[in-house]
């Protein structure tokens, strides 16, 4: 018997959280990049490869990540698997991106 942790049809769960949330810019960026990587000219990542990514990165991670974060992390895992870049290169790029978000130094005057 094999049942993935994502295969939840029929499981017990609480009330439906009937809410509408805004679609945030970074979430749109995730979907746009995914769509471009899977398009007919690039064919670098199919939707099923992306799904394999988040269906195999561990139940704890799957459950604690939001929908778009899950897809983003899976996309990165697959691209690293395909040697498009390394984890170290991603870490370096993240450090640069984070620096752009860092709060300005406190004003002492």
């Amino acid at each position: 018997m094999t049942r993935g942790y994502h295969d939840i049809g029929g499981k017990d769960a609480g009330p439906i959280p009937i809410v509408e949330l805004p679609w945030l810019h970074w979430e749109k960026q995730v979907e746009a990049i995914r769509s471009l990587l899977g398009d007919g000219t690039r064919r670098m990542m199919s939707l099923d490869e992306l799904r394999r990514g988040f269906e195999s990165f561990g139940e704890d991670k799957y459950k604690k990540l939001s929908f778009y974060r899950r897809r983003l992390e899976a996309m990165i895992d697959i691209l690293i698997e395909k040697d498009v870049f390394t984890r170290d290169e991603l870490d370096a790029a993240m450090a640069e991106a984070r620096a752009r978000w860092a709060p300005p130094a406190a004003c002492r005057s």
């Binding site: 018997m1 993935g4 195999s56």
Partner: peptide, 14 residues
């Protein structure tokens, strides 16, 4: 069928 396949499949358990 229950093919017992590990990995990505689209046949829900139920």
């Amino acid at each position: 069928l229950e093919l017992g396949k590990p990995g990505h499949v689209r046949t829900p358990f139920y």
